[in-house]
Design a binder for these strands. Sequence first.
DNA 1: CAGCGATTGGCAATCGGTTGTCAAATGCGT
DNA 2: ACGCATTTGACAACCGATTGCCAATCGCTG
Lengths: 348, 348
Amino acid sequence: MFAVQRGTPMATQPMATGRPATIHDIAALCGVAASTVSRALTNPERVNIRTRERIQAAAVELNYTPNSQAKALSSGKTGAVGVLVPDITNPFYFDLIRGTQLQLKAAGYTQLLVDTEESDEVEASTLEQLRKSADGVIVAASRLNDEALAAAAARMPMVTVNRDVDGVPAVIIDTPSAMPQALDHLISLGHTSVAYVSGPAVSQSSARRWIALSEAAEERGVDVRRIGPFAPKTQSGAAAADAAVHSGVTACIVFNDLIAIGMLQRLRERGLRVPEDMSIVGCDDIFGADFCNPPLTTMSSPIEQAGRVAVSMLLAQLNPLAGGGNRNRSVMPTHLTVRGSTGPVPST
Amino acid sequence: MFAVQRGTPMATQPMATGRPATIHDIAALCGVAASTVSRALTNPERVNIRTRERIQAAAVELNYTPNSQAKALSSGKTGAVGVLVPDITNPFYFDLIRGTQLQLKAAGYTQLLVDTEESDEVEASTLEQLRKSADGVIVAASRLNDEALAAAAARMPMVTVNRDVDGVPAVIIDTPSAMPQALDHLISLGHTSVAYVSGPAVSQSSARRWIALSEAAEERGVDVRRIGPFAPKTQSGAAAADAAVHSGVTACIVFNDLIAIGMLQRLRERGLRVPEDMSIVGCDDIFGADFCNPPLTTMSSPIEQAGRVAVSMLLAQLNPLAGGGNRNRSVMPTHLTVRGSTGPVPST
DNA sequence: CAGCGATTGGCAATCGGTTGTCAAATGCGT
DNA sequence: ACGCATTTGACAACCGATTGCCAATCGCTG
């Protein structure tokens, strides 16, 4: 009598069966119960090694992949992590997304990417929805107020990026600490009248940058005024540039590179030269900052790394077993990268 | 005796209960069976209007959201769509991703974004995994061969972007058709010796662009040679620029803007002026093409729109009910955008 | 008022796993 | 060789929703 042949050409090249294999198929093939199959695959040491190996071989043979939905239902773990960004077209988040994507995939998680469209309502409802369909979330530049964010974090594992709220683990890209550096750079070029071009009013990042800058300015006795707010888009750069010119400053430190690049374009349109007539310092060092015209002096941030760290911190929350210090706050260093958009103060 | 009070302050501001509400909670609150609740919410006309309204009110009150995992398990539909891109850091895909994200969200679907790292193996295994966890996939610039792609498409609803395989619905960004335009533009500037800087060898887009260009060149009696292949990254631009200079051409049509921008940088480093010494035409019109130095002449593509169309085509597959023509091929028009990187041929 | 049909509610099976519980089988020591 | 302890397989409940099927109810008509 012929036993079921294993390792035949057909078996080594399992054709696309109509329906993906389940543990029941494996169980039938091995003559054991489905639960045994489940155990053998998830808790191998609790099953006889010979049975286990038979089951594992059968799983390979049938090209078995666990159904993540079913797994999620019974185990309560979805194997997915939500990543919320305010604006998916902002290049800043590209790098962040890549960082999270890489690290999540390495850990066997799926990334659920959501663009919250700069809206706190979309953000809140997404968070609520994700509560069931994801094991945790990474929230970049949240537009939620502190209470709402803390409340959401209490309901599901969360790591924020660039948002500091008590009790919520966070990755902070420490651009503020580079502000004095940027200011000193401008001072060393002779500038004494500087503007801070601020970002969205609800952006905590923008607020923190302004505070750091104005403190540094006070210490050094330099005049720094604040203009804005401006939306973090290149299109906003036109208005920002006009406002900066009108304010009479000789240099600007800009909330982010997107606005800064927009300013560069506008200043050029208006026949003003950068840096001869106006120096510009951006923030973030996004894609494009190195090849715009002129190349942008900016605060370089390890954005992709920040994404990776955020994932690590989230995974540490999800699997507390991995011994040791669950940091709940991680500060990423930044530094000034001087390129062509800053120069000596106009001699006029 | 007091009935359960509805509409009390507590009810209008449902506090975060430990566990999200299920249909059973609603059923208990309304004194009906869980299945009735299910029907009332998914198939309202099959339930008494009074009961239905009670149930709907209770659902609102309990802040009920259906558990997507459970829904997926029993209905077989996950409400998720996978989006596969070869390289998430390529700005080209940003726009595509934004397009898919917007359209998917509008249709109530969740986007599963995966970076396949330019690897056919990662792509294949992701596709297999997605078979169970997504209702369909959108595959951009697939690295799979035609058979593998067709086989995968046979197993689950799929739409490709920039990849034409028999039987697989596709959105094609018709950059090739703009190639003659680009060439005529260069010819009108006096160029007679042009190079095509090609992309990855496995890229069908690059191959199609080259074919269109060489045909147009032949018709016009212009010399067009091909150099490359180069990886679609700005870093590759240096080698591409050197190769172009060495080949002695006066103008380049480049596989994509990323490489083109890298070439711009390299040429500048080498002291060559664009467009005075060399004209450059890119493809795609990605973020950055308008503000690099000089601004890049390029073939503008409706990338975000392509993403939206891809989603529409996929949804049409998923819900065939919506009457009418299921196009299985959609061609997006492109056009030449002339900026500063092209100019008259050197007078030498 | 009875009988009929149409409507509506509820039970239970099902999706594909996980996991607690129990019984069977094995191994060990004495 | 016996008894106890331990290992290991099988059964069944459960996660949260969907859905086929049957029963109960309703309203209408004759």
